[in-house]
């Protein structure tokens, strides 16, 4: 069983997935941040690979990406940093990023290096199902990586089925058709999450975008297996010198 499957087999409620940007706030923060997240009780880590033009992300994550690029983060550096991370980090870790950086690195080399480092899966929001099925999916599978597709309130039921069939690990339910970290009212999203729940998908569902505190996390968890927090955490660690304490306080605030 993959680490993701094991996680969802052991726990299917209240799963907390936290996003962090590799190389942020400092170039060497990647591993300490992941440690702090695991230590504080995150079930899953989504590690962002910085890209200059992250279409599906909001201003907070874009700013953290640009900071990370300025800090010197590249995929080459990232895979160096990840060389021994499995010695201490046991929670599943998923890489999130955009096609262009993976293509430049060489898509197969990218998958091979990710798998060799102990990465469990990928989220590449701008890799659509057609290109996944005709070209890239086979490479991702060859290296045993899970691949997570996104669905939104605008995704038609048949397409949700299709994306569920292509995904392994979990399905990423975008809480509203919005970029990450937006402040939209959460309540209209509940009907959509309920609809998803009733579809009985084969993959677990994690809700992302706009999850920022205990209230929104708990609400998402009413309808799904868990939720993903990104921008709110990036904001929390932006100014801190004490990653561990800040991360603990942040996650305690969600879990309490």
């Amino acid at each position: 069983m993959s680490r993701l499957q094991t996680l969802f087999a052991q726990k299917n409620k209240g799963i907390l997935n936290v996003y962090c940007t590799a190389g942020y706030p400092q170039l060497d923060s990647t591993i300490p941040v992941m440690h702090a997240l695991q230590q504080s009780g995150a079930d899953l880590i989504e590690l962002g690979m910085p890209y200059s033009d992250p279409l599906a992300d909001g201003p907070v994550i874009q700013a953290s990406s640009l900071q990370a690029i300025d800090n010197g983060m590249t995929l080459v550096v990232l895979f160096q940093q990840l060389q021994h991370f499995r010695d201490t980090i046991t929670v599943p870790v998923i890489l999130m990023g955009y096609m262009n950086t993976a293509l430049q690195y060489g898509f197969e080399r990218f998958c091979a290096d990710a798998a060799a480092a102990g990465i469990d899966g990928l989220i590449l929001p701008d890799l659509p199902p057609y290109e996944f099925e005709t070209e890239f999916g086979a490479i991702i599978k060859k290296y045993g990586l899970d691949f997570i597709f996104l669905v939104t309130p605008e995704t038609a039921p048949e397409r949700i089925q299709q994306l569920d069939a292509l995904s392994t690990g979990f399905i990423y339910a975008v809480s509203s058709s919005s970029i990450t970290g937006s402040d939209k009212d959460f309540s209209p999203v509940e009907a959509y999450l309920q609809r998803l729940q009733e579809m009985q998908l084969r993959n677990p569902i994690l809700v992302g975008f706009g999850i920022k505190d205990k209230y929104t996390f708990d609400m998402a968890c009413n309808y799904a297996n868990g939720a993903i927090i990104g921008s709110a955490y990036i904001k929390a660690i932006a100014q801190t010198d004490t990653i561990e304490a800040t991360t603990k306080a942040f996650i305690d605030g969600i879990r309490s």
Partner: peptide
Amino acid sequence: GGAYIPEMLYR
């Protein structure tokens, strides 16, 4: 060419 877009733009 192609359409390398996130699902949020798909519809």
